[in-house]
Design a protein around this nucleic acid. Structure first.
Length: 347
DNA sequence: CATCGATGTTGAG
DNA sequence: TCAACCTCGATGG
């Protein structure tokens, strides 16, 4: 599945194109008919991501909770955001949240209730395409974007809303946009209490928790466990949003042996991991893809953005020479997933 | 065109 | 520990 960055991007897309709109919910596939009925007719008032989970809040007090799992995806069509406007949304959301949280985000004393600030935000009509988009000249009224592990811009639409294609678990339709969900591992209606319960099981997320509080929480949990750091990074109750690619890459970037027990990772290294995740997550949200290498020449960077094979230090590079020392990258199973690492640099 | 595997999680055994 | 979930791009014939 999409790791944390994709889920935040999707939440941003909802924020920008659906929040403030009345929604017709349906389940073309039928498997979510009851849930869709509970939500239909309500207005979406908030959209937020925590790790790989997303929560869409409606003005009837209910939430749609979605986890995409391994191959779930949202297809958006209509007046929707693309490219650069997505990054803008993130910036606006972060600023709003900071403002809402008030004076003392570090102590967390005063959570504040109001999430109302954004609910009055007028519909944001898709503006010009960003740097990665196509088809911006001639400004089509509606367009279609798939948001999943990879995003892809599809053809402009002739009619709105488009016919649902394939197994669509949920369709959310507003006056200006439509979102189709397919293949999720989790799709349910929750009340506020259910949302709190779900979020309470999750470790800190750099785009939700403050740098200090989030970092402290991660260090406290991870530093106490004898579990290998390679498993801790994938444990969503320890830190939110990291998946198999970011795991391998973060371990390499820290030159850390994946088998090191959490208790034996120096605290400053744990802090550095949190900081690195913050950086990678933000970059992933802005870029719309995982770029885990840095220090690249302009040319190498451009190439990396084009081809997935050039974007990572170790992921999916079994048997290939380490980009730093030339040793062959090894692959092993850790936690039922493929782990790639350099046995020399990460000795 | 058929098969495989994947950036994930749950729950049965 | 492993199958199931349910989708689709990549791969091979």
């Amino acid at each position: 599945m999409p790791e944390g960055h994709s889920v935040h991007r999707i939440a941003n897309q909802f924020e920008q194109s659906f929040v403030g709109h009345r929604i017709e919910a349906s389940s073309p596939q039928g498997r979510f008919a009851a849930g869709a009925e509970q939500l239909s007719g309500a207005t979406m008032v908030d959209s937020k991501a925590v790790g790989k989970q997303m929560f869409l809040e409606f003005d009837n007090g209910l939430f749609l909770h979605v986890h995409l799992g391994l191959y779930g995806a949202w297809d958006f069509a209509g007046q929707i955001a693309t490219g650069a406007s997505m990054a803008e949304t993130r910036t606006r959301r972060m600023a709003t949240r900071r403002a809402e949280n008030g004076k003392d985000p570090e102590t967390g004393k005063d959570p504040e209730t109001g999430k109302a600030a954004e609910t009055g935000t007028p519909a944001h009509v898709a503006d010009d395409d960003g740097e990665h988009s196509m088809a911006s000249i001639g400004a089509p009224r509606t367009r279609r974007v798939r948001m999943a592990e990879q995003e892809k811009q599809e053809d402009d639409l002739e009619s709105f809303p488009p016919e649902p294609v394939g197994q669509v678990r949920v369709r959310l339709l507003s006056d200006t946009a439509v979102a189709d969900l397919r293949g999720p591992t989790k799709c349910e209606v929750l009340d506020a209490e259910g949302v709190d319960t779900a979020i309470s099981k999750l470790g800190p997320d750099p785009l939700v928790d403050s740098p200090k509080k989030g970092g402290d929480r991660f260090v406290a949990i991870a530093g106490k466990k004898r579990t290998p750091i390679g498993l801790l990074l994938m444990d969503q109750s320890v830190i939110s949003g990291i998946g198999n690619i970011y795991r391998a890459e973060m371990l390499f970037r820290a030159r850390l042996n994946p088998h090191t027990p959490g208790t034996e990772v120096p605290e400053e290294t744990l802090r550095a991991l949190w900081k690195d995740w913050t950086k990678l997550l933000k970059s992933g949200v802005e870029l719309g893809q995982m770029m885990t290498m840095d220090g690249l020449s302009k040319k190498a960077y451009a190439q990396a953005l084009k081809s997935r094979a050039d974007r990572h230090w170790v992921y999916h590079r079994e048997g290939l020479p380490c980009r730093v020392c030339g040793t062959n990258i090894v692959m092993e199973d850790m936690g039922g997933r493929k782990l790639y690492w350099c046995p020399v640099d990460q000795a």
